[in-house]
Structures are given as structure tokens and as C-alpha cells.
């Protein structure tokens, strides 16, 4: 099967700064692909190159078999974009936003009205049809941006941090809608720094850091391989680390100290939790948490638990 997106040595430089540093990735039909990474990792720069907003500095980028440098218009006809900022047309109402946007795609007026009606229903915006954009809540604005991105029935949907800044209800509604698009066969590429979002939506993820893809795969595989099945969090003073490590030396576990916590990563298929808790009970700690490994652990293991402000 031909990939819908094929990127080779994709590079983006802004003057001295290399935002995207020669990355490769392949995305297939019906993939729900997530770019994860801290702020400044190059996620937004990558997605902006995908819709021709930002010209690539070097490399190769084919979307739906077309070269972005020569066929941007034909590519853009077939994709939908939810950009990081809500760039709705504040001069217009909800319905007008959809109709005017449809016109950019040369969708005939009758058809545009039909699609706008369907999309407003799908996104629970019918009651707001005649409202101006300023009158909408944050969640409604985001839903309208998403509705607008679907007006041309895109083969690929690009979402740059689709739910950042939304409250939990608003976020879950958008996730539900995005999941329901899967059955329609739309591929989806999103950037996020919410691990829960990636876990909810993506079947494949690429973790980016400092302009590079540092790992890629399905979330489950990557967590299993690079983190383990379970995590034991031990709140304990750093002075006791050495004692803990001696106690568990024979188990050959990966460990990591960050802040007030010592993390122990438990591989799959071993009933180590019981053994560990028994042994660690004797050492003075304030709290012990035993839980499933998550995408968050993977992300933090790969990009470092330090908070990097950029």
C-alpha cells in the first residue's frame, strides 16, 4: 500500500536555528499518527511543512503521492487543517465561516450548505448557527475549527494541538468526534504534549525532541520496550537511593531518580511487584505507588524528566 505521507531528511531551518533536523517518517492510510514532544521540539514546524504553510529547507516530502513543492494546491485540496490558534473569521457567523471556507475549495453553494448543516450537527453547533465567533466558548470555537477543516471531506486531517487549553468535557467531546472519523477512513496526524490525548487517539506515535524523531512505533510496543509493563514510584530521600539499589541489585531493574521520587521500571512477565514491595517496606519512605506504565513514562524517559523551558 502506498503511504499517504512520505518524508525523507525533512529539514526546517530558521536562520541559525534548526527546528526540524532531517527527520524521516511514513504515514499510511487510516493511520492515526501523533507527534509527541515538549514545546520547541519541532512538532508544529513539521506539521506546517505538511500543508505547505512553511516551505521546507531540505529533504523530500510527498503527500498523497504528490510533491509539496510543486503540487501544494492539489495537496491542500485534499487535506484539512486544525491549526494551533483558532483562526476563525471573526467578521462572520458560525454558518458563514463554514460557507466562506467551502468557497475556497470551490464547493458549490448547495453542496456547501448541506455539508455545513451536517458538520454543525456532528459538532453540536446547530444552536449557534447564527452566532458570531466571539460569542462562542473555547470548546465551541475549537469544534468550529474542526468542522471547518472537514468541509472539503479531507483524506488527511492535520491537527496541531487540537485540545490545548480546553476543559475536560470540551476535550472529551472533541476526542469522541475524532475517533468517530476513523470509520470514515480519514487519516489523522496530530501534535500534542498531552500523553492522554495520544493514548486516546493514536495508533502510532513519533516522539520528537530538539528537532529529531527519537523514537517511533505503536504506543503499547514503545512503552513495553522502553519503559516496561509497570512502574513503582518511591518517594524517598536521595540519601537512601544507594541502599535501595543494593537491596534490588539482583533483579536487574532500570531505575531513575527525579526530584523527590525514585522510579523503578518493571519489565513484563515477571511478578516482581510483590517481591519489591516486601523488600522495600523495610526502608523508610513516605509513599509507594505501583501502577501501569503509561505513554507519559515513555515520553518522560525519552525526553528527560527535567522541565526544559524554551
Amino acid at each position: 500500500m502506498q503511504p499517504i505521507i512520505l518524508a525523507k531528511n525533512l529539514t526546517k531551518r530558521f536562520g541559525e536555528l534548526t527546528a526540524v533536523d532531517s527527520i524521516d517518517f511514513t504515514i499510511h492510510e487510516q493511520d492515526y499518527f501523533g507527534f509527541l514532544g515538549p514545546n520547541g521540539a519541532g512538532k508544529t514546524s513539521t506539521i506546517r511543512m505538511l500543508y505547505g504553510f512553511s516551505p521546507m529547507t531540505a529533504g523530500q516530502l510527498k503527500i498523497l503521492g504528490l510533491d509539496i513543492r510543486t503540487a501544494a494546491r492539489r495537496i491542500k485540496e485534499q487535506i484539512g487543517v486544525v491549526s494551533q490558534e483558532n483562526n476563525l473569521d471573526t467578521d462572520l457567523t458560525v454558518l458563514e465561516n463554514l460557507l466562506v471556507y467551502a468557497r475556497y475549495f470551490d464547493i458549490p453553494r448547495q453542496e456547501a450548505r448541506r455539508r455545513a448543516g451536517d458538520l454543525m450537527a456532528f459538532m453540536q453547533l446547530q444552536a449557534k448557527e447564527k452566532s458570531r465567533v466571539e460569542q462562542l466558548s473555547g470548546g465551541m470555537k475549537r469544534r468550529l475549527v474542526l468542522a471547518r477543516a472537514l468541509i472539503n471531506k479531507p483524506k488527511i486531517l492535520l491537527l496541531d494541538e487540537p485540545t490545548t487549553g480546553l476543559d475536560p468535557q470540551a476535550r472529551h467531546l472533541i476526542w469522541q468526534r475524532l475517533r468517530s472519523l476513523k470509520s470514515g477512513g480519514t487519516a489523522m496526524i496530530l501534535t500534542t504534549h498531552y500523553m492522554e490525548e495520544a493514548a486516546q487517539l493514536c495508533n502510532r506515535v513519533a516522539v520528537m525532541d530538539a528537532g529529531r524523531i527519537i523514537a517511533t512505533g505503536t504506543p503499547q510496543e514503545m512503552i513495553r520496550e522502553r519503559v516496561g509493563a509497570e512502574v513503582l514510584e518511591l518517594r524517598i530521600t536521595p540519601e537512601l537511593d544507594a541502599q535501595v539499589l543494593r537491596t534490588i541489585a539482583d533483579l536487574d531493574l532500570e531505575t531513575e531518580r527525579y526530584g523527590d521520587t525514585l522510579y523503578l521500571y518493571l519489565p513484563e512477565g515477571h511478578a516482581l511487584a510483590k517481591v519489591l514491595t516486601d523488600r522495600l517496606m523495610g526502608i523508610n519512605h513516605s509513599e509507594m505507588i505501583h501502577r501501569q506504565a503509561t505513554l507519559e513514562d515513555l515520553f518522560l524517559r525519552l525526553t528527560g524528566r527535567e522541565l526544559v523551558e524554551t
Binding site: 500543508y51 505547505g52 504553510f53 501544494a72 494546491r73 492539489r74 491542500k76 485540496e77 487535506i79 487543517v81 491549526s83 490558534e85 483562526n87 476563525l88 473569521d89 471573526t90 467578521d91 471556507y101 475556497y104 475549495f105 470551490d106 472539503n152
Partner: peptide, 14 residues
């Protein structure tokens, strides 16, 4: 302020 340009260039318009 409105980012209308950004929104439109995500469509077939340049």
C-alpha cells in the same frame, strides 16, 4: 489579529 490569511492559505489558495 484575525489570522485570516493563515486560515486561507491552508486551503487551495496561495
Amino acid at each position: 489579529y484575525m489570522k485570516t490569511y493563515d486560515a486561507i492559505i491552508a486551503t487551495p489558495l496561495s
